[in-house]
Computed example of a mutant assay.
Amino acid sequence: MGLTKTTQDLRRDLKSAALALEDAAQDMFRMAKQYGDAELLAAMQKIETLHVEADRLNGYAEEVKDGRILRADME
Rank of each mutant, 00 (worst) to 15 (best):
L41G: 03
T7A: 02
T6M: 09
L57G: 01
V52F: 04
Y35G: 10
K5T: 11
L40Q: 08
I47E: 03
I47N: 01
M28K: 09
R56W: 07
D13K: 12
A43F: 00
E63A: 07
Y60W: 05
L57I: 00
R11M: 07
R71E: 09
K33S: 14
N58G: 04
G67D: 06
N58Q: 06
E62K: 03
K46A: 00
G67K: 05
E39Y: 11
A72L: 12
A17Y: 08
A61M: 04
K46L: 05
R12P: 00
E39M: 11
A42S: 07
L19E: 15
E63N: 08
L57A: 00
A20K: 15
Q34T: 15
G36E: 10
K46Q: 05
R11C: 07
Y35W: 12
L40R: 06
D73K: 12
L3S: 05
R30G: 09
A72W: 06
N58W: 00
R12T: 14
K5E: 14
A32F: 06
L40K: 06
D73L: 13
G36C: 08
E48V: 04
R71M: 08
D27V: 14
Q45A: 07
K46W: 04
T49P: 01
Q8F: 03
A17L: 12
R12A: 14
L70V: 10
A43R: 04
D73Q: 14
T49W: 01
D55P: 00
K5I: 12
K15N: 11
M1I: 12
Q34N: 15
D27F: 14
L14I: 08
F29N: 13
M74F: 10
A32K: 06
G59P: 00
E39V: 10
D27E: 15
K33A: 14
L3V: 05
A54Y: 01
A18N: 09
E75M: 15
T4R: 09
K65L: 05
K46G: 03
A72P: 06
T6V: 14
A20H: 13
G67E: 07
M1H: 10
L14Q: 04
E62A: 05
K65T: 03
Q34D: 15
M74D: 13
M28N: 09
E75Y: 15
L14P: 02
I69Y: 06
V52I: 04
A18E: 07
G59D: 03
I47L: 03
D13G: 10
A24H: 09
D73P: 08
A38N: 10
D37L: 11
I47A: 01
A42T: 04
R12G: 00
L40P: 02
L3M: 09
I69E: 01
R71H: 08
